[in-house]
Design a protein around this nucleic acid. Sequence first.
DNA 1: ATTTTCAAT
Length: 151
Amino acid sequence: MLSLLINTMFFKFQFRNVEYSSGRNKTFLCYVLETQGKESATSRGYLEDEHAAAHAEMAFFNTILPKCDSSLRYNITWYVSSSPCVTCADRITETLKKNKNLRLTIMVGRLFMWEEAEMQAALKKMKSAGSPEASNMSLFFLPHDQFRKDL
DNA sequence: ATTTTCAAT
């Protein structure tokens, strides 16, 4: 199908490991939510930013996270086209510190505003969120990432 | 040429 080809090309364009996200103007967030315990369950979904209204990460916190049961453990995986901005990274850090039942793995397509020192600090803080003995945050870049500096 | 970032018309 032609539409499948176009969708595939668009997906690859959005998740491409480029240095600057010129012309993309969007961020996609695919998530896998695994509930642990007696009744293990997996749900999957996809979110995108609402432009100026809310970034994709905020959309997750506003619409998906409230449906989680704080007495259950969750393994959350995000596949995001862009790394989070400073505000979103801070929100992720806070959320992981506040909710010890969550474990979040983020797979990042490309970096967002990596040159900014504030951005680097926010990502480092996010990566070390949670208790040091049992960190509940993992951050991964593409294996062939050309632009990532050491975190 | 890599060419400027989760829109604004």
